[in-house]
Amino acid sequence: MTQLALVIDLNVCVGCHACVTSCKEWNTSGSAGPLADTMPYGKDPSGAFFNRVQTFEVGEFPDTQTVHFPKSCLHCEDPPCVPVCPTGASYKRKEDGIVLVDYDKCIGCKYCSWACPYGARELDPVRKVMTKCTLCVDRIYDRTRPEAERKPACVLACPTSARLFGDIHDPQSQVSQAIRDNAGYALMPEWGTHPANHYLPRRRTSARIHEDELTRADNPLKVDGLLPRPPKSDPSLDDVMSW
């Protein structure tokens, strides 16, 4: 059974927000759109976005890590947001595991958003229906698009390729391998939601220099007469010992 998902590599995400606005842009005029904004030119502008990039600081100066953390719907394998929906507007597709909202059925009761521990759903302020990441379902199956572009908008936009897309149930897929190879993990495992989206942790490359690498026989200083060899005439053991 297929479970499509995003795998997000925190090791390379620089927090550029490309995924945020490309998602908005694709979806606002797409099958999930429009994604409305309130007070777009006034006080406290706000709007529906399927994807946010947040920033966290871990540790204390000078051992601080700044972590950019993109988050959209995780397409949980056991999505708590689906069974609570009274209308059936929230559903999980059997064929690929994408969790979707049927905007024509949704009554805007917000109950599914309460049931999502991840804050991944947003009520559209104009249509008053629940919205969320569709995993770009209207792109990934679009046969008019070249194969390479049948991917979510955010994935294609991401300059660092921090967003991988694929079937996590297929052990051969790029996403499954990335999860395996890099200790990919799910968010809030304590609730048994089994998010399909995974995150890859920071990986640190460190350097080790051995003392003996600093002094080498071919040190260029020697060429220029520094680090000179002692004159042969200087006293040495040869002058006083014979074995």
């Binding site: 927000h17 945020v20 007070m39 006080k43 406290d44 502008p45 706000s46 709007g47 529906a48 976005f49 946010r52 990039v53 947040q54 920033t55 958003s113 759903r121 947003e122 009520l123 302020p125």
Partner: peptide
């Protein structure tokens, strides 16, 4: 949080 004017 990735935005400043508030959200849902």
């Amino acid at each position: 949080a990735g935005f400043l004017g508030g959200s849902f």
